[in-house]
């Protein structure tokens, strides 16, 4: 049994058979919530509104 960090930083007890390679990578959280003022119109017509993409 080994102890590893879970996604939220808390301890996550993990039973292992065969050691997984120890090569951590940071996985930054992406922003998915709509910014203030973002509307469906702007989301779907980005060129017309110069927003979105």
């Amino acid at each position: 049994m080994t102890t590893a960090q879970s996604n939220d930083g808390s301890d996550n007890q993990q039973a292992e058979k065969g050691a997984l390679p120890d090569a951590p990578m940071a996985m930054p959280r992406q922003v998915l919530e709509a910014p203030r003022g973002m509307s469906m119109f702007r989301a779907f017509l980005p060129r017309a509104t110069r927003a979105g993409n």
Binding site: S6, N7, N12, Q13, A15, L20, A23, P24, M25, M27
Partner: peptide, 20 residues
Amino acid sequence: TNNKGRKAGNIEDFFQRSGG
């Protein structure tokens, strides 16, 4: 033992530990 994030969290956990 903590299956946070379900399948996506499971895979993410692998990348965070061994992805490199």
